[in-house]
Design a protein around this nucleic acid. Structure first.
Ligand SMILES: [Zn+2]
Ligand SMILES: [Zn+2]
Ligand SMILES: [Zn+2]
Ligand SMILES: [Zn+2]
Lengths: 159, 159
DNA sequence: TATCAACTGATACATTATAACAAAAAGGCT
DNA sequence: AGCCTTTTTGTTATAATGTATCAGTTGATA
């Protein structure tokens, strides 16, 4: 699975395709991609960067889509539960899924300088973690894998 | 490296040894394990469970070691920077290091029911993540690996 | 013992997140 | 369409987590 985020790519298509997949997924499953939810996903998709709930709320508020924190948190909860977005625990922030529709276990490369985030896949890496869990009798339900450091662009600026 | 946390072990020795190692480490490096910091480490060590900063503060406050948030956050910052404790990002909480003194890259198994945490090691798992990072030109400085699920004890209670 | 750096105490504030409840909208049913 | 139920939205208030700042104290070192 491709690591999406830092390299050049057709980002217009990236946004368009992801929205289309989200809509198709909702049509399939009966979930409702309402105006606020759809716009929230678009806002997250605009860049491959993590946005805080209040950053998202600020944009929604400008557009008259809601001005109180629950508006943002509800939209984010929906997107995360539907698998359309992920929470970056190390930043208390959120990012649109870059592999929407694919069955994947995301791993993130997070730039501490520009907050851009690339999404890779660590299913193989979790073999190791899975071994440790099995040995300990632990039942894994969800994993968080986040690497923090410097993206290619920021290494040149501040190496 | 052993996964410490869920299995039976001599926890008294576990506490005692870790404190001794922390003291030795400070003696070596010139760091100062002051009263508040030492007590904070003891409190974290009491159980293999994650404590929030305000949970820690409540205990410190009872004991007259400080009553304002910065007291807890300063102690935690010190312990984390010194490698004596780790932050569990998914819980915004903190846990004493279970492998103090060993050069390790921690990975955590976090029980969503009882909040107990086992500390394993993922250096091998990060081979995969490292590959993805290298391919993307990303320079990893720190990694967060946290698996959430049910510990052995809680699987029996609420399976 | 004078000096400087590190640590502590304390106030205030910033950021992130949730509880609770009423109103509105959407969807299913006859 | 009219009625009923569920989901979503609007709003207020508050909880939980985390920092900035500055004054005072302590401790190492010269
Ligand atoms: Zn893109
Ligand atoms: Zn960057
Ligand atoms: Zn122990
Ligand atoms: Zn448990």
């Amino acid at each position: 699975m491709q690591t999406i985020g830092f390299e050049k790519h057709d980002h217009g298509a990236c946004i368009h395709d992801t929205l289309a997949k989200a809509e198709a997924s909702c049509a399939d499953t009966g979930l409702r991609l309402t105006a606020v939810r759809r716009r929230a996903l678009e806002i997250l998709l605009a860049e491959h960067r993590a946005l805080g709930a209040y950053d998202l709320l600020a944009v929604l508020a400008e557009e008259g889509l809601g001005s109180q924190p629950p508006v943002a948190y509800r939209a984010l909860d929906f997107l995360v539960k539907a698998g359309f977005a992920h929470k970056i625990e190390a930043l208390n922030a959120y990012i649109a899924c870059a592999h929407l529709g694919a069955d994947h276990t995301p791993a993130f490369l997070i730039c501490r300088s520009c907050r851009s985030v690339a999404e890779a896949d660590t299913a193989p890496a979790q073999g190791r973690l899975g071994d440790a869990a099995r040995d300990a009798g632990f039942k894994i339900e969800h994993t968080v894998v986040e690497a923090q450091g410097l993206c290619p662009a920021c290494q040149e600026i501040a190496p």
